[in-house]
Each structure stands twice: as structure tokens, then as C-alpha cells.
Design a protein around this nucleic acid. Structure first.
Lengths: 248, 248
DNA sequence: CGACGCATTGATTGGATTCAACTAAGGTGG
DNA sequence: CCACCTTAGTTGAATCCAATCAATGCGTCG
């Protein structure tokens, strides 16, 4: 735990993600590692942060899956984002006081917690890093827009196919998808609350994708059998993920 | 056009908006006015920026309405944001190369265009202003999330009511809503492409809101007759707009 | 092993779409 | 200045995609 460990950098999902799109200095990498030191484990189905909280720390996903969600008066739930390793849960609490939604762990997860002051230091002293974090924020915005397009104008089949394509791309970006296979620890109910559908209909649509030989899903693992057809069915154009698309 | 004109500041929608949530120095205000000097008029139904563009300038809405939209292969359209005076159209082009969506003027509009370099200068030299702009970005993200919730889990009636509440709040924030009345220059087709519905169904739902005495809409002007009931029907909780909710 | 969460499948219902016709309003050119 | 044409709004009827209700299978965990 003393000398700078190159493995530590390779294992950090945020570093992995940012280095795909920009060059980080040794110092930047170390700053990220430093900041990822204080961690907290969260069990599945537990909130990482709840709506209304006014947290003093920003949380960075290191392991596991989480979801941003909002509850409606009638009891309905809408998931508005999936958080995977390398994603910040709540960068906005550095500026906005109150959480206007909750974040819950979908699997056992590990998060780093970073004080607001620490984040502020970072953004003031490391312009390259700040720029990279800003890139990540903007990509997130693009994902939100694409979800609106999906829920608003694609039917159930296209929606589901599109989401699977997106998650595959994102998992690849952090090195968590080998070939066409990756961990997908979501229940059909969670998928339903993401795509604005019922769990029953997710089931039927999933069955159809299987029947057509496009995917294989079981034991929380997804394998894409025919990516070309899947992307085509979804109308998936990965431009909005801006992989490697940063301006310097 | 020589001496610093206090009216110029009062008339700038971005200044009006930011001063609701934070204090700007005289210098900050002047910087915004400076930057709003080079303007361009855009006719209704014309693109301000198109998908795939790699613009060198960032655009700031000064007058009129615009919409962020995405087209689908089948010809369907989804609007992902409304831009009103004080909103930036494309802050992301400072970091991301390519526009992954288009922006079109819904009414005759005036936009200021600001070079990327200029924006970068601004963000490097004016921390308070940068913070305020960041606040605006984060609020936008909150709006996107709320739209996902609407389209995903609210029915047509709630959706429409919610959108009207939101637009009312936003118009109030820039001083463009007096009491319960404001300009709403949207066609029913545009509302449909926003809420993921058909124009016909928007019409029926609008009729119902009228019949129930909640709104009065005609001649591109909306008047909210019964805000309490409308908000209740929508499940509208304005927290996500973070009015005045900045941390210092 | 009983209980509970998750997945699967059938039957029925319903909110929203589509198609279609018609009206009202606005803009343009002869 | 009005005939014409286009765009936006309104309304009815038929249809459909997805929701709801309901029942069953299956695995796993306390």
C-alpha cells in the first residue's frame, strides 16, 4: 500500500473510462486513486442516497450496479439511469442542495465517497481532469435524451433492443464486456420501470428476442447473438455515447 | 451604446435567470452582456443547429422558443427539450465534437453566438459565473429526468398537465409569465412529439383540461385557471427545478 | 420444506393510435 | 380585396399495442 501501484490505476473504472477518451497525467491518475480510497459497501436493494437527502459527499461507483429512480404518488416507479462502475452518483450535490431523486443499489455495490471540498479542489487544480469529468456529464445528458426518444417514440421491442445495445456499449467502455457477453443483473420488473412498460410485457418481449435468436439471457448474464440485427431492430446509433469524442 | 446601460442587464434573460439564484458582480453582468452582443435572427421552423454539425459557436437564446429534437428512421420525431430565453442551446459543443441532435426555432428567434474560445475564457476567469452556468446545466438534467418520468409512468392527462406546470414555472423564472398567463407558441403536433403521444390525443386531452376549467388556451396564450387542481392532477412537485437552490 | 421472489403464459380490458372527414384561421397572389 | 391554399384544430369510428388480472412453475434461502 506504499509505492504507486500501476495495477491500482488499471483497476479503477473511472480511470479506465476516462483514458479511453483523453490522456491523463500521472498526477491526475493518482488524484483519482487518492479520492477513491474511502469506500463504503452497500447491500443490494439499499439506497445509496435517498430523495430529499442533503449529502456532504459525492459518490463514485466502483463495483456493482445502481439505479437512479423516482417514485410517483400512486406507487409507480421510474428508473432514470443505470449507474455502473466509473459513474458518479450525484455530482450535482456539489451545487444543488437537495436530492430530487433516490439512488439504490441493484447488486451489492462499492462506492467511494468524496467530500464536496475535495471535488472542488480537484476541479480547481486539474483542468484536464475537470474537462474529462465535464465530458462524462455531457455524455450522461445525451443518454437521458436518448431514453426520452426511446420511451416516447419506440415500441416495446425497439425500446428493449435499444437499451440492451446501450448497456453493451457502456459495459465495453469500462472493460466489463468481453466480446458479446456481459453481466446484466436486472430483474424484468426493473427493466419495466426503466422502459415505461409492465413486467409482463417485458417478459413477452424478451421471449421474442430469444425466439428470434438475437440474445441469450439467463443467470444474470446477457449474450448478444446477433448484434447487427439487434442494432438494426433498435435503430441504435451509438453517436450519442460520444465514445472517444472529446475536443481539445 | 457607450455607457454601461442598466436596462441592458435587466433585459438580458440569462442575467435575469441567474440573478434569481445567485449574486453576480457588475463585471459578471457585463461579461454576459458583452457576450450577448453578436446575435443572429432565425425564422420559425428553421434549424438553429442541425444534427451532425460541428459548430464553432455556442448559441444562447435571447428571444423566442426553440426545441431540441431527434428524428427516427421511420420519420417519427421526439422533442427532448424546449429552449426559452436564457437557455444555452449547445454548451456541449465546447467539449463534444458533433451534435447528436438538432435544434429548431419554433417561433422567430434571436440567438447570441459565442465562440468556444470565448466561453472557455469565461469559465476560466469567472468562477461565480461558471458555477451559475453549471447550476443551469444540472437543472436541465433534472428536467430531462422528469420528462422520462412523465413519458414513462404518467398517462396522457397527467403528462400534459405536468408539462404545462413546468413551462409555467420556467417562464416565471425568466419573468415571462405574469400571474397565471404566458405565451405558449406550440402546436398540438409539437406537444405530441414532446409527450410521446399523437396530435389527436393531445387535442382530446387539451379539450378535457378546458372542459374541466383548469386552463384556457387559445391564440398561443395559456392561462392557468386553477393551478392547485392542475398541479395536483399532474403530481407536479417543482423541487426538480431547483428554483433558488444553489449551494455556495 | 414452506415461503417468497422472479419468470412465464393465457384471457381480457383499455388507453391511445390511426384513419378519415370537416372546420377555422392565416397567408399569398392574382 | 377576395379566391385560393395551406396549416392547425376538432371530432367520430375502428383498431391495436400494451396493461391488467390471474394462475402456474421454478429456484433458492432461511
Amino acid at each position: 500500500m506504499a509505492a504507486p501501484d500501476p495495477d491500482l490505476a488499471a483497476r479503477n473504472p473511472l480511470i479506465r473510462r476516462l483514458e479511453r477518451i483523453t490522456k491523463l497525467s500521472e498526477d491526475d491518475r493518482n488524484a483519482i486513486i487518492d479520492v477513491s480510497r474511502a469506500t463504503r459497501d452497500v447491500g443490494a436493494h439499499r439506497d445509496i442516497i435517498s430523495e430529499g437527502d442533503q449529502p456532504d459527499n459525492v459518490h463514485l461507483m466502483l463495483r456493482g450496479w445502481a439505479a437512479r429512480y423516482k417514485m410517483l404518488p400512486g406507487g409507480a416507479r421510474q428508473i432514470t439511469a443505470y449507474l455502473i462502475p466509473g459513474d458518479f452518483c450525484d455530482l450535482h450535490v456539489t451545487i444543488l442542495r437537495k436530492m430530487d431523486h433516490g439512488i439504490t443499489a441493484l447488486t451489492p455495490a462499492t462506492v467511494a465517497y468524496i467530500s464536496r471540498e475535495h471535488i472542488r479542489e480537484l476541479t480547481e487544480q486539474r483542468p484536464a481532469l475537470t474537462r474529462a469529468l465535464w465530458w462524462a456529464t455531457l455524455v450522461n445528458e445525451g443518454v437521458l435524451r436518448e431514453w426520452i426518444v426511446s420511451i416516447g417514440r419506440r415500441d416495446a421491442y425497439e425500446r428493449l433492443a435499444h437499451l440492451l445495445c446501450e448497456l453493451h456499449s457502456r459495459m465495453r467502455m469500462i472493460g466489463l464486456a468481453v466480446d458479446e457477453t456481459f453481466d446484466l443483473p436486472l430483474t424484468q420488473e426493473q427493466l419495466a420501470d426503466t422502459l415505461g412498460l409492465s413486467a409482463v410485457h417485458i417478459n413477452r418481449t424478451l421471449m421474442r428476442l430469444r425466439r428470434e435468436g438475437l440474445i441469450e439471457l439467463g443467470g444474470k448474464t446477457l449474450r448478444i447473438l446477433n448484434g447487427a440485427v439487434l442494432r438494426d431492430a433498435a435503430g441504435f446509433d451509438p453517436t450519442y455515447l460520444h465514445e472517444g469524442d472529446i475536443r481539445n
